[in-house]
């Protein structure tokens, strides 16, 4: 039930994942599994995590995102975290969170530009 609220859309050789506004821990964990499965299944070269509706980014969520970025990296993909709200950026910085080696973009459009412009292939994670 939890994972129903996550949509993983394949866009050419990229995956677009829209994170729900206030996901519980189970949904956050399910998101990671779904993303990794879809990466392998679609042979995707990159992932855009659209967090524009996310209201609260706490330490569990941030850790799972950072892990996912790392795992996607090991699978040869690049992750762009797109659309973080200003209030969430302020809060997560003060809380002391990091989201690993994720690229970031103001919105999904720019995230797609970033991944399409960047050379594909391996990347240090």
């Amino acid at each position: 039930m939890a994972s129903e609220s996550i949509s993983v859309i394949k866009l050419r050789d990229l995956l677009l994942v829209t994170v729900p506004p206030d996901p519980d821990d189970e949904t956050v964990s399910a998101l990671q599994e779904q993303v990794l499965r879809a990466m392998a299944q679609h042979e995707a070269k990159g992932l855009v995590l659209d967090i524009s509706t996310v209201q609260t980014l706490d330490s569990f969520f941030a850790r799972t995102v950072a892990e996912t970025v790392q795992m996607v990296g090991l699978m040869g993909g690049r992750t762009v975290l797109a659309g973080m709200r200003a209030s969430v950026a302020v809060t997560s910085t003060q809380l002391g969170l990091t989201v690993g080696n994720s690229l970031t973009a103001l919105n999904v459009d720019r995230a797609l530009d970033l991944l399409n412009a960047a050379p594909s292939g391996s990347r240090r994670v």
């Binding site: 821990d25 209201q55 609260t56 706490d58 330490s59 209030s87 809060t91």
Partner: peptide, 17 residues
Amino acid sequence: GLTDVTRIVTAASELTR
């Protein structure tokens, strides 16, 4: 305001967890 609401909610999330 929105930023303070987000700060308070995030702290509540940590402490509840």
